[in-house]
Write a protein that binds this DNA or RNA. Structure first.
Length: 201
DNA sequence: ACGAAGATGGAG
DNA sequence: TCCATCTTCGTT
C-alpha cells in the first residue's frame, strides 16, 4: 500500500479516520500510536517491539506496509498494528481506539452487556475484542479485497498529538495521535516505570 | 535456568 | 494502586 510506505508518524496521520471492517463490525479509527524505525537510523525508537531486531513475534513489522501485526499484551489481550514504511524497515501503527459505525449488537455481545457504547473499542485490547481480531490474524493484508480484516483509508483530518500510553522508554515522544472531540479516545496513562517527564528522549 | 517487565484493562 | 496471566528478554 503506497500511502503507508512512509515513516510511522506520517502513516499514523493517514490511518486516523480510516474505516476498519471485520467480522460483522465496521469502525472508524480515532486514535493511533506510531512505533518503530531502524535502531541506527533517523527514527530510532526504544519503545518499539522491533528495537532489538527481528524475531518470531515482530517479523511483520519488518515486512511490507499494509499487513496486520498482532501481539499478545500481558498474556491476556490482543493488540493490532498496521505495518508501514518500506519492506525491510520495521515500523507500525498501533490501533488504539475506534468508533463503531455498524454491528453494535455484535460488539455488545462480544464486550458484555454492561459496556457502554463510547467504550466499545476504547483502548487497543478492547478494539480487538470488539472487532473480533485474534492472534490468528497476524500478517494478513488489510488492503486485500477478501481479507477478513479490511481497512479503507479516509480523508485527512486535523488531529492532536501527545505522548504514547504505557511506554517506559521514549515516554515523552508525542507519537500518539487522535481526532479532537471524540469521547471514544482512551485516557492518557504514563507508565509508572517511565522516568520523570521532560527527561532525555 | 530464573526473574522481571510488558505498546492493557478492570476493580478497589 | 494492584493484580491477572504468559511471553519475551536480560542476567546468572
Amino acid at each position: 500500500m503506497e500511502l503507508l510506505r512512509v515513516d510511522p508518524l506520517t502513516a499514523a496521520r493517514r490511518l486516523l479516520g480510516a474505516v476498519l471492517t471485520c467480522r460483522g463490525v465496521s469502525a472508524t479509527v480515532v486514535e493511533v500510536e506510531a512505533y518503530g524505525g531502524p535502531p541506527d537510523g533517523p527514527w530510532p525508537d526504544a519503545a518499539a517491539h522491533s528495537y532489538r531486531g527481528p524475531g518470531p513475534r515482530n517479523q511483520v513489522m519488518f515486512g511490507p506496509a499494509g499487513r496486520l501485526y498482532t501481539y499478545r499484551s500481558h498474556g491476556i489481550h490482543v493488540c493490532a498494528n498496521v505495518a508501514c514504511a518500506d519492506d525491510g524497515v520495521a515500523a507500525a501503527v498501533l490501533l488504539r481506539a475506534a468508533v463503531i459505525e455498524s454491528g453494535h449488537d455484535v460488539v455488545q455481545r462480544r464486550r458484555g452487556e454492561a459496556v457502554r457504547e463510547s467504550a466499545f473499542a476504547r483502548g487497543p485490547g478492547n478494539l480487538c475484542a470488539a472487532l473480533g481480531i485474534t492472534m490468528a490474524d497476524n500478517g494478513i493484508d488489510v488492503f486485500a479485497e477478501d481479507s477478513p480484516v479490511h481497512l479503507r483509508l479516509g480523508e485527512a483530518q486535523p488531529c492532536i498529538a501527545g505522548p504514547r500510553v504505557g511506554v517506559s522508554k521514549a515516554a515523552d515522544r508525542p507519537w500518539r495521535l487522535w481526532l479532537a472531540g471524540r469521547p471514544e479516545v482512551s485516557a492518557y496513562r504514563r507508565s509508572p516505570r517511565a522516568p520523570a517527564p521532560g527527561g532525555s528522549d
